[in-house]
């Protein structure tokens, strides 16, 4: 499954809730306020790195640009909307 997260992890539990259910290896897409989970140098960076050991983590480029975020955690993959569609081609999707 592609797990879609659109809430800031500083405000909501949806990323951690989703991770309780997500199988290892399932991709995670951070979009809308979810992209704040990929902020380099944040208090959550170490946790995000643990998550990235088990999951491919993607961020939606357009939402990153919209919010003026320049530095993402190393290893986070950027996709645009076309790439987002591509992830959904490859995986069924769950919106948390």
């Amino acid at each position: 499954m592609l797990h879609m997260i659109n809430k800031s992890p500083f405000e909501s539990n949806s990323l951690e809730d989703c991770l309780r259910y997500a199988s290892d290896g399932s991709p995670i897409l951070l979009y809308e306020d979810g992209i704040y989970g990929a902020l380099a140098g944040s208090a959550l960076e170490a946790r995000m790195k643990e998550i990235m050991a088990k999951h491919d983590v993607y961020v939606l480029k357009e939402d990153v640009a919209l919010r003026g975020i320049e530095k993402l955690i190393d290893g986070v993959k950027e996709v645009d909307y076309s790439g987002f569609v591509g992830l959904v081609e490859e995986n069924k999707a769950a919106s948390w």
Binding site: N6, E32, V85, E89
Partner: peptide, 19 residues
Amino acid sequence: HEASDSAYNFAKAAVEKGH
């Protein structure tokens, strides 16, 4: 909320990819 914008942009990208 941004949900309607995301849905619109996703729909547009999907049809542009031929879906």
